[in-house]
Amino acid sequence: MPQPATLSATRCILGEGALWHPDRGSFLWFDILGHRLYEHDGQTERHWQFDRAVSAAGIVEVSHLLIASERDLFLFDLDSASETRLCDLEADNPVTRSNDGRADPQGGFWIGTMGYKAEPGAGAIYRWYKGELRQLFGEITIPNAICFAPDGGHAYFTDTPTRVIRRVALDAEGWPVGEPDTWLDLRPEGLNPDGAVTDAAGNLWNAQWEANRVASYAPDGRFLRSFALPTPQTTCPAFGGADYDRLMVTSAAEGRPEEDGAAGNTFVFKTDARGRAEPRVVLA
C-alpha cells in the first residue's frame, strides 16, 4: 500500500477544494475556516488571505480561478490578488457558506452550500454556467463528493449525513437530466463520504471523514482499494503531477487534539492510477 508524504505541514482548520493546476505545475487547496487559498509547487508554498470563507475553485486560465466564497462567486487573479465578482451565492443568508465544488467537463462549475453549524437541510447544490447560476438540488445538509464521469455523461454528489453517493445523468450542456439515483450506499459500513474525484478510467476516489482514508470505487460502485492517512478527518482528493499519478488529499484539524500533529496537513501519494486534467470553466 502506498504511504503518504506530507506535501504541506500547514495545519488547516478545514482543508478542502484540492485542485491541480497544470499550467502552474502546482497543487491548490483551501482552508475554508481560515479564509485562505494555498499553492504548493513541490518546493515552495504560498497563500492568499481573504475576508470571508472560501472553499473551492475551477481553473479559467493560467493566472485566473473561479472561486466560491460564503457569499459569492468571483474571478481571482493569482498574480495581482485582485477579485472580480461574478454573482451572489446565498449572499442574503448569513447561516450558510460554500463547501465542496468542482468544474464539470462541459465547462460549468458546481458548488454546494451548507450551514456553518451543519443545520439540517440549510444548503443546496448549484451550477454556474456561462453567466447563469442555477440551483440544482435543495435541502442539502453537507454537500460533498461533487465530481464527474470523464465523458461528462454523469455527475456524482452526496449529502454526507445520508452516507449515500448519488449519480445523475447530464445532457450535452452539462445540466442534470432526470432524478439522481443511489450509486454507492456506505451506510452498512458507517462511512461518511467527503470530497471526491474521478480518475482517467472513471474510478471514483472518495475521502472518507473520520475513517483515516481515501477509497477508490469502480464505475459500477465496486470497492477497489483504499489508502490510509495518519489523521482521521480526510476531506478532498485531487490527482496531479506531470503524469497525473500523484494523489493529493486535504484534511481538517477542527476539533482534533494538538497531539494529532498530522491533522489539517495536506498529503500526497505516488500511485499507479492516472488522473486527468481538470476541465476549464467557460466564462461566456
Rank of each mutant, 00 (worst) to 15 (best):
Q3E: 15
Q3S: 08
L7S: 03
C12S: 13
G15M: 13
W20Y: 14
D23Q: 14
F27T: 06
I32Q: 04
R36A: 13
E39K: 05
H47R: 12
S55Q: 03
V62N: 09
R71T: 15
D72L: 02
L78I: 12
A81Y: 05
E83H: 00
R85K: 13
L86Y: 00
E90C: 07
A91H: 08
D92T: 09
N93A: 05
P94G: 08
R97N: 04
S98E: 09
N99L: 03
D100V: 00
G101I: 02
R102N: 14
R102C: 05
R102K: 15
I111T: 11
G112E: 04
G115R: 01
G115P: 10
P120W: 00
G121W: 03
I125A: 04
I125T: 04
R127I: 08
Y129H: 15
E132Q: 15
R134D: 10
E139V: 02
I140K: 01
C147V: 03
A149D: 14
D151G: 11
G153C: 06
G153D: 12
H154Q: 13
A155F: 06
A155G: 15
Y156E: 12
T158F: 00
P161I: 00
P161V: 01
R167C: 12
R167T: 05
V168E: 10
A172S: 12
G174L: 03
P176L: 06
P176K: 05
P176S: 01
P180G: 02
W183N: 09
L184K: 08
D185W: 07
L186I: 12
R187V: 07
L191H: 09
G195C: 05
N203C: 14
N203K: 07
L204Q: 13
N206G: 01
A211M: 10
N212S: 13
A218M: 09
A218T: 14
L229R: 04
L229V: 07
T234D: 09
T235I: 05
F239N: 10
G240W: 07
D243E: 15
Y244W: 13
Y244P: 09
M248A: 02
M248T: 06
T250M: 11
G255A: 07
P257L: 00
E258R: 11
E259D: 14
A262C: 10
F267P: 14
F267L: 13
F269L: 15
T271S: 08
D272R: 07
D272C: 04
R276K: 14
V281A: 10
L283N: 11
A284V: 08
